[in-house]
Design a protein around this nucleic acid. Structure first.
Lengths: 90, 90
DNA sequence: TGTGAAGTTTCGTAACTATGAAACTCTAAA
DNA sequence: TTTAGAGTTTCATAGTTACGAAACTTCACA
């Protein structure tokens, strides 16, 4: 349980990953799409996606020649929204 | 704004600090109390408290010979509760 | 069978983080 | 003005992290 908290904590600790999670919260996107939207390299986006996927937070759908990533653990969307709310109060 | 998000992210990224934030969410506590409850050293607890305080998340009340810390940004409590909820769904 | 688009992985590095240990500061009361 | 309790700060270190760059993989279709 405490282990899962660490996984979650790690996943959302980096701004880059929060960006990605927000992007794919409602829409599935390819690595390339994400890289463009976030202005990070495809390589970096791919590594972030791998981390999130390995943690069990994402779905992947393959449709040649693309791979579409989307948010599997929908609760994360709410968490990020609360994140925003807290920030506005600071 | 993105800067504040980083502050928040940093504050709650460490398990030790989430422990502390949960402890003082409803009750004010001294450094020593916190150290005992969390089984960390007084020194370490103090350093975590300083970080949280410097980020603007805590209140301090001095009453010789103690300093009582408590949660100032109450929204953090809700955030940590949601954290727990998300974890249960993983 | 080899080409190209899409994505992944590896390597190296600089920066950051949490922590233990130990020295230090502060302050009211004796 | 000494002392003791409460808390803080510094120093050193081991581990983690995000990232750029570049090499690598995969696979349908020409």
């Amino acid at each position: 349980m405490e282990f899962k908290e660490e996984k979650l904590s790690r996943a959302i600790s980096a701004f880059s990953r929060r960006q990605i999670l927000r992007l794919i919260a409602d829409t599935e996107m390819t690595v390339k799409d994400i890289a463009e939207s976030t202005e990070m390299s495809v390589s970096l986006a791919s590594r972030h996606l791998k981390l999130l996927y390995d943690l069990g937070f994402l779905n992947v759908r393959k449709e040649f020649p693309n791979k579409f990533y989307s948010l599997k653990v929908k609760e994360l969307k709410g968490l990020l929204e609360l994140y925003d709310k807290v920030i506005k109060k600071i």
